[in-house]
Nucleic acid binder design. Structure first.
Lengths: 336, 336
DNA sequence: AAGATCGATGTAAACGATTCCACGCAATCC
DNA sequence: GGATTGCGTGGAATCGTTTACATCGATCTT
């Protein structure tokens, strides 16, 4: 493959001049420029970008490590991140942790190795020496969706307490006296928070949350199926179930269908994370809607602030409870 | 940012030795190795991959450019690609074209700049000088899902003809005499093929496909809404609609709900791409199921073959028609 | 016990681009 | 008309790594 030296030789010029032509440097004669262009054409020369980025660091790419690409929340997040990043002149390359802390660390390494300008991370584990190192190393990092105790990193996420409280009120109003939860991993801040919010909200109604009403999944679909089965297999199954993310809600739904139960009458189901198709299931599924797009955009803005040397701050964005019919009572005009 | 020199100095060794540790060279004492590891930890050192690939090309990372991360087909594909790649010792970084040819080219450039070992690409446009250059430049590339006429690149995709024919037979059997299609872009091989297969299959039943029965979307949700509206706004709307991908099917579904129509009785709907939740909509949605996981895994295997200097071949994997009730007739035991 | 062998480490030359600095030359100034 | 300015270009250092070759003890051979 032709190098800049070959071009220089072919054009009878120095590599410095060729480089100037390549980078649109003003002080090059039109004639010289043409000669270089010609040599480039003839030799089918393509600059080696490894050499290029070695010399002058790449500042155009951001890294995004998501919890699980298959999770629509994260893919929508990825799209939002990308759109906002492009508006600021950055590209985004994505690594998929698949909810596996080891994979997360690997992609973290790869992206750092590749010298991305900054990192957006949805941490998949509470403790990761690598993450801690990266943060302490002073690299520009923003956490998205999840935070890690003890690490002073800007976090952009949803505030789960209010909407979960609203959901519990909704459930209790419909007569559910012993709702269950399919929680996310308690090792993740989102898992913990949603569970705690659920428990606390029930407590205000004088309702406890015994172990028989809690199952812990991993935010992926299969764990939702298993959790729902386990809940329904009890002597006194719950009348309502709150799945802490959309994939586990889908899994729960699969189980409900397996058993031939009717949603909303035999068993109530609600989900953290709203999805377009929740509206089209019969009956439509009540869900807590996150401002996914806004989360992504805000996170990018904070990261860009960091990159520009400005201070960044954390955000807990509000959610809305979208009440539909899956918890028992058809709510007219439920959207909103 | 720490360099190999800093590590060498901190460990009281030469850069050569540090490099040997980094690359698992056998002839390094355990003690020396430990000292280097320690220094690496302390300094939070990450090798500069630009320098590394400048000296000797990086062989551990594959690049994947998907059509649209938000499309569940592509996110499932991404997961499969990643799992298979890891089994072969590769990592995968993802770029999202968002169905935009310019973005595709940008990510292609970025990934090539970063000197990934090989590329998996879901081309978003028929003509792209960059893609052509890359292919002609002899870089290891495998196309996934879509192909480009005139480029001799291994392609791993679904064979759409058989299942689309089966779908049309199904529709005709249920009495639909003028089905419509929400096609993908005709600039994409998948768009063209599915449309052609639909038209040809109808022809064998003596049914034509006039312009009033064809709408062209972009494989994204909004275009499905618009296309469905346009189809239904006609004086004589079709009784059945085939959406050429899952996102446009979701869009069509939104339109059906907007209008207060009942799926299966007022209007039939079928989709290319099956999704778990299609089963839980009322009535469940008939769909053509691709072997997404197998497509991803096969594509990686072919790319790995290329990287190992072995020949690679193309694959057209079979799909299955999963008949459910959305086209009018509840089919008992419809799964399969 | 002296030379051959071997294993661990260091030295320094690449890789291909960018860019600071210096140089020569023409045009301009006083 | 000699000094100054400015412009186009070239020389060479530099980015951070890998790796061929050199070095240097220690061990082995006979």
């Amino acid at each position: 493959m032709a190098t800049i030296k070959d071009v220089a030789r072919a054009a009878g010029l120095s590599t410095a001049t060729v480089s100037r032509v390549l980078n649109d440097h003003p002080s090059v004669t039109a004639a010289t420029r043409a000669a270089v262009q010609d040599a480039i054409q003839r030799l089918d020369y393509h600059p080696n970008s490894a050499a290029r980025t070695l010399r002058s660091a790449d500042v155009s790419t951001l890294g995004l490590v998501v919890g699980d690409v298959v999770n629509p929340f994260f893919s929508e997040l990825a799209r939002a991140v990308e759109n906002e990043a492009r508006a600021h002149g950055y590209y985004v390359v994505i690594g998929n942790a698949d909810e596996d802390p080891d994979r997360q660390d690997e992609y973290l390494s790869i992206l750092l190795d590749r010298r991305v300008a900054g990192l957006l991370l949805c941490p998949t584990a509470e403790v990761s020496p690598l993450v801690a190192d990266v943060v302490r190393g002073g690299r520009p990092v923003v956490f998205v969706d999840r935070e890690i105790d003890g690490l002073d990193v800007p976090v952009v996420r949803s505030d789960s307490r209010l909407p979960v409280t609203a959901l519990v009120d909704h459930l209790v109003r419909l007569g559910h006296r012993d709702p269950a939860i399919i929680s996310g991993p308690t090792g993740l801040s989102t898992g913990r928070e949603r569970l705690a919010a659920f428990r606390d909200a029930l407590a205000t109604h004088g309702i406890g949350l015994p172990e028989s009403r809690v199952r812990v999944g991993d935010f992926q679909m299969d764990s939702g199926v298993a959790a729902m089965r386990s809940l329904l297999d009890q002597p006194e199954p719950p009348t309502a179930v709150f799945a802490a993310d959309n994939l586990m809600a889908l899994g729960a739904l699969r189980c409900v269908h397996e058993r031939g139960l009717r949603l909303g009458t035999d068993i109530a189901l609600a989900s953290f994370d709203d999805l377009p198709w929740f509206e089209y299931v019969e009956p439509p599924i009540t869900a807590i809607r996150q401002q996914t797009e806004r989360i992504g955009r805000t996170a990018v803005r904070e990261l860009v602030a960091l990159l520009d040397g400005r201070p960044a701050r954390s955000h807990a964005l509000p959610c809305t409870l979208v009440t539909r019919a899956s918890c028992g009572e058809p709510v007219p005009g439920g959207e909103g």
